[in-house]
Design a protein around this nucleic acid. Structure first.
Lengths: 220, 220, 220, 220
DNA sequence: GATGAATGAGAATTCATTCAT
DNA sequence: TATGAATGAATTCTCATTCAT
């Protein structure tokens, strides 16, 4: 039985000094990276920049991450990990289309508003370059939305839509409207969600039927 | 009469060899850059990569562009310059909401389909990183859409919507659905446009009133 | 008790291998630079030339110096640091003008003779270009001479001279005569110093009064 | 007989348009170079910088000079060419040591004062790097001074000095004091010359005998 | 595991110079 | 002779990564 395993199983060594430092260092790096990405933008940031924003030594970085890509991904995944369950839960408990739609958007916009620093790292205001990294966790989030749509359709909540396109549309609206919201002082998460919800509520019934749908008169 | 003089007076002056080469070289670089960006993705591409994809010498690159950012921007602007007038024209001649909306989306999706190579440069297939560079020309395109919405609203074509959010929503749907479309073999520009149009046609009347709107029961 | 702790407590701590290497590398670079400057002249020397004259990697250079200017300055400062105290001491202990003057020149010319390699870096034998870098340390040396002159004047050792011009004159003679000395086989430090001393000894009393001087009929 | 020769001999083609432009262009380059050297310092200046400061094309530069070194040398030579005859004349007509010495220094300091821009290019105030290029013309000026000293010695004007060291001393004092003079507002050419003259007048008789002197007990 | 200096490949960029126009 | 874009060698410098301590 190896030492690592013993330690992780041991109920009365809840966080050895080593583990604590490890968690702490990882956190230090992630926090530093968040700040640096937000300041320099993803493209211009180098591993050195991140290390410099840290009290740690350069070699230490590589005990935690292989590259800036990996840190970036970790940051994105962390966000996704925090919001995905909330979104899914909202949709799971939705009894109506409206609850499904508005629950999704309101949760998302509220999250973005709380988590601005992070969101801004993706879309840096000061230069023209937007970056979005579709990490496995984020893609899973998209896929989950798609499946929730399919499930809702099967429950008869939704008409037979093209779930793939609908998911894309919701994602596009969510990200793009979120960005506008952050730039405006007259619109908060509630207004943004109201807007997006109304758009989809009105539109949803008019949509051409999707691939998995039943008998329908799809097409343009 | 000397050759130079003759040339400068000639109304159809065939643009001296010098000018011709300049135009040609600029083109050479832009084409090479397009290919390289599509292959390696924006982030991984270096100026050297672009030069290598060119018959030109390294120094020559710098006679035309200062950095890869600048070439990238030039490429994006070029695309925007090609599509913007088409989009605007579609909307200007729209007599109904439907023409406005479907004209915009169909034109956009058709452009993307034709121009795949370019659009793909934004998102390298093999990695998760999306980039979008909002060049002045592109931003102007967004703004133009916003103003066209305002104008249509004033003409009574649209109900009093939040033009900023509506523009953002259309942009988000356009880009995100376009990407899906490119990945799917069962959906082309016509289907994508039909989907997006239906969504907005249904939704538009349900939208809360915008900032410039008249008396209506908007809000969350 | 761990090794690090032991080391840090040890009063004769032999400067860990790391520190040793750092000092050594800095030295390696300075030595190489001295050689290269002497051979190619300051102007023609590149950072690469210096690195090549070193067993180190290119990046290592930049851990120690930012540019060839900085290495050059370090070399000059090092020289100045070695000679300044000697010069000052000579002058401080001078009981007569003659000791002041001859002590300064003899010390300088002897230093130059010992330190030829360095001095020659200022002037490449094969071309016409002289360079002199007035580093802070060197300027401080000039200023120290000026102040020593002022002090000697206040002690009544010197007549009330223009200390600024006198300093300049001594500096000019020192550098220019030193250079001649190095080119001649019939004159060494002793002769050069004798020459300069005689010049200033004879001339000093004839000088017009300086700015800080008392009542006298100076001027041209 | 070649065209160039014919042209240069022809009395009635005092300056064909071609020649005029040539002289003008050469002048343009020299003036631009003077400005740029004064601004950037010799080391940092590139041929491109000089060309940019000119209305001419890059290729044109090479019709006149091979490198920045050559332009620099031309500038220095031009100065030397202007002052050398004046200095020599002063010394040739000197009936006494004093006239020899003071004529030399006053002429030099006046020249420097008039010609500041030029002189400053050599010794750039804003950074630490001094450059002096001993062009053939300048070296000839030094040598001329040495020979004038020898001649004056032979005429019995000077005691039997070490002409080489004396020349060096005068050169050193001239350049170093000139620089101080330019930095001071309370001392002009007259004062600088008075200072230098007094120094050398007093000192000269005390100097050890030189190499070319008669029987003397020179040495330290 | 942490440290941080060394490494050296390679990226960005400049520059003197050429040469077709 | 003037022009100015093209050239590509050369230079500066950064960076991710390693590894002895």
């Amino acid at each position: 039985m190896d030492a690592e395993l013993v330690r992780s199983l041991s109920p009365r060594r809840p966080a050895g000094k080593r583990e604590q430092t490890k968690v702490q260092n990882r956190h230090l790096i992630l926090e530093a990276a968040r700040r640096v990405f937000a300041e320099l933008g993803y493209g211009a940031t180098t591993v050195r920049d991140i290390i410099r924003a840290t009290p740690l030594a350069s070699g230490t970085f590589y005990n935690y991450f292989k590259s800036k890509e990996e840190v970036f991904q970790a940051i994105q995944d962390e966000s996704a990990l925090r919001i995905r369950p909330r979104l899914h839960e909202e949709r799971a408990k939705a009894a109506t289309i409206e609850e499904f739609i508005s629950g999704t958007f309101l949760t998302f916009f509220e999250f973005v508003a709380e988590d601005q620093a992070n969101f801004r790292a993706l879309r840096r205001s000061t230069d023209a370059l937007h970056v979005r990294m579709d990490t496995p966790e984020i893609i899973a989030g998209f896929e989950e939305l798609r499946q929730d749509i399919v499930a809702a359709t099967e429950k008869g909540l939704f008409p037979p839509v093209d779930a793939d396109f609908l998911m894309a549309a919701m994602v596009g609206v969510a990200f793009e409207v979120a960005e506008r919201m952050l730039r405006r002082s007259d619109r908060g998460p509630a207004e943004a969600a109201a807007f997006a919800t109304a758009l989809f509520m009105g539109g949803i019934n008019a949509l051409p039927a999707g691939r998995m749908g039943g008998a329908n008169g799809g097409g343009a």
